[in-house]
């Protein structure tokens, strides 16, 4: 890039070739800005999830556009829709196959609490089987709500003591 000003953020002539930071800050910066979602689309919320991925809302602005249909490549499971008891074992197994570190967003009323399905067939909230990081209200939530949840999750990730966790692991 040809530009007259190369010193906006970092002046290597003055500050040298070394950047001083904290390990937590670097690790969390890397993790939070490239969260690959596992789209667990189970009902109508998945349509809004798709809208969040499309051009108008563009989840790529937040580094989460790489929907991974293999749990082994995913960082954040977005549970979008009604989890039936029959499906719940599969959801848990897919979560178990995701590599650490991993997070969960419960998108919409059904995933969060069972929603309007007070029924013999529906899991009353996916937090009964998974540790949920962010809940999104709405039936279904608008794509902006999902983006907000993603930003909140990024904030949460940025506060994690990642380095000490890695060292103690």
């Amino acid at each position: 890039m040809v530009t007259s000003n190369t010193e906006l953020a970092y002046n290597s002539k003055i500050e040298g070739e070394v950047i001083v930071s904290r390990a937590d800050a670097v690790i969390n910066w890397i993790r939070s800005n490239s969260m690959w979602p596992m789209p667990m689309g189970l009902a109508c919320c998945a349509i809004e999830l798709m809208a969040a991925g499309a051009s108008r809302f563009d989840i790529a602005r937040f580094g989460a556009e790489v929907m991974r249909f293999s749990p082994k490549q995913a960082d954040v499971m977005i549970v979008a829709g009604t989890v039936t008891y029959k499906m719940s074992s599969a959801v848990r197994r897919i979560y178990d196959q995701m590599a650490d570190p991993k997070w969960v967003i419960a998108m919409g009323a059904c995933a969060s609490t069972g929603g309007m399905y007070r029924s013999y067939a529906v899991l009353q909230g996916v937090d009964r089987i998974l540790p949920v990081d962010v809940y999104v209200s709405g039936c279904p939530p608008r794509p902006e709500a999902l983006l907000d949840a993603l930003i909140k999750l990024q904030d949460k990730v940025k506060r994690e003591p990642s380095a000490s966790k890695l060292l103690s692991a």
Binding site: Y85, R92, Y120, Q124, R128
Partner: peptide, 12 residues
Amino acid sequence: VVAETKTGAIAA
């Protein structure tokens, strides 16, 4: 999964 999550189908 039951052993892991200690949960089952409940009366809603």
